[in-house]
Amino acid sequence: MIQVIGQWLPYLMQGAWVTVKITLLSGVVAMLFAMLSGLGKLSSLTPVRWLASGYIELFRAASLLVLLFWVYFALPIAGLELSKTWSAVLAIGLNIGAYGGEIVRSAIQAIPKGQYEASIALNLSPLTRMRSVILPQAIVRMLPPMGNLWIEMLKATSLVYFITMADLTYEAMILRNNYYTDTPIIFGLLLLIYYVLASCIAAPVKWLERKLTAWR
């Protein structure tokens, strides 16, 4: 059995690399939209607030699987064709970014008003106030929920199996079709690899949270 598992692992590792790549790229897109939408909801400009709120409400309500299908299958009909990789990155990034936007907004609003008043008293510009006073404190509050969001994003990558991307879940399903009687072992390995990948996200987040909390 150990020899057989050794034969499976290269395929699973190949799929795991695709999963990691999609997670990292989606994470960049998600964090960008999270910051923009979170700050947008706090903007003094009404159109900006409406736009940020509309994005958050729309993409939080949308099913990620349906969104993935829409980006991959519907956009080409409208004249915009993306590869499987970028379809997955865009769909996951937009969906997770909407949840991240609320995390950013709530973390900034949780900063005591005294911090705002003190920075105003020091005659800091709004940009300097946000960059140097508010955001450094808000980031510490964002870290735990953002870490959870990254783990959710990792698990969400399993949906790219439905557009036939050769990710970790896809490779496991191929092995399961070829070794049906070993299904419990194959899916057990699948769970174990996802657990290891999730731990690789959780551990640095906890370390960074401790460091930033101590610094603050």
Rank of each mutant, 00 (worst) to 15 (best):
A202L: 09
T19F: 03
G54P: 10
M35W: 06
E57S: 07
S43Y: 00
L190S: 04
L149W: 03
L64P: 00
L154K: 07
A107T: 03
L143G: 15
W50S: 09
L175T: 15
A166W: 02
Q137F: 07
A107R: 12
L190E: 13
A156R: 01
T181I: 12
I120K: 00
M153V: 13
Y170E: 09
N148T: 10
R60N: 10
Y99R: 09
V66I: 09
K155D: 07
K113W: 07
L25S: 15
I103T: 01
G147D: 06
T181E: 15
F69H: 13
E171L: 08
I5K: 07
L192A: 14
S106H: 05
T23S: 06
I174N: 05
A78N: 12
L90K: 10
S132Q: 12
N95H: 14
N95F: 08
L159P: 02
A121L: 07
G15F: 03
I151R: 00
Y194V: 01
G101D: 00
E117R: 04
M142Q: 11
R131Q: 10
F59H: 13
A202E: 15
A107W: 01
T23D: 05
V18M: 08
A203Y: 15
A88T: 02
V196D: 01
M165W: 03
Y99P: 13
R60P: 01
I77Y: 14
L159H: 03
N148G: 09
I120V: 11
R210G: 11
G27L: 10
L168Y: 00
L135K: 11
F33H: 01
L51P: 06
R141H: 06
S199N: 07
L122K: 01
S132D: 14
S119R: 14
Q115H: 13
P144V: 04
Q137M: 11
E117Q: 11
Y194E: 02
A52G: 06
V140E: 02
A121T: 12
V140C: 09
T46P: 00
G40T: 10
S125Q: 11
F187D: 02
L39G: 11
E117H: 05
L80E: 14
M146R: 00
L124W: 03
S43H: 07
L32V: 13
T181A: 14
I96M: 10
T164P: 14
A107L: 08
K113F: 07
T157V: 07
K41Q: 03
L135T: 02
R141W: 13
F59D: 01
A30G: 01
R129T: 15
K211H: 05
M31C: 12
V196M: 06
M1R: 15
G114L: 11
R49T: 12
L45P: 05
L82H: 15
M35F: 10
V71I: 10
T213L: 14
E117G: 05
G97Q: 00
M153K: 01
L191P: 06
T213Y: 04
N178C: 03
L197F: 06
A172E: 04
L168T: 08
